[in-house]
Amino acid sequence: MKRIKPYAVLLALACFLPARGAGISEYSVKSAYLFNFAKFVGWPANAFENEKSPLNIGVLGEDPFGEALDEVVEGKIVGQHPITVLRFDRFETGQAERLRKCQILFIAYSEKPRALQILSSLQGSSVLTVSEIEKFPLLGGMIMFNQAGKRIGLVVNVKAAKKAKLEISAKLLQVSKIFKPERQP
């Protein structure tokens, strides 16, 4: 009995950790955040083809969400727009037109070297850009996931959002850090 005990503990831990991780993993939380942005951000009317056309969440680069994002948005409707997920493997110049069809665009970490290029190609469109790339707001991105202790926090570049004619709800700003370019190093 005494010899078996450590194995049993290890076994229990081994079972416990993945199970817990699957429940509230970082990316399932971030998936939920991506979906929730749809509720707290207002797009100009011309951002959609019509009232009932889908609200597209694009994932550009190496997709960290996997199934989690699809599970979150499955069957969900915001306003009158059903939610769809569009995936783009990596950024190519010719893709710009397709990226502009997204209302929310998550730029994966793999696209860090091309981040500036991507953002400039979206100039003049009303795409909410989201990323976990460091100093994303400084590059002109709108929302950055910011790991602050246990909580996944948000940094919002209000100026960039305004420029893209996006209305970010005051409630969302209340739970976010506001990016201020002057203070950033």
């Binding site: 955040y33 709800s169 409630k171 209340q174 739970v175």
Partner: peptide, 14 residues
């Protein structure tokens, strides 16, 4: 209504 965003973006402090 006010707590909505705090719940959606996991902000217990707010």
């Amino acid at each position: 209504d006010n707590s909505n965003a705090a719940l959606s973006f996991n902000d217990p402090k707010t």
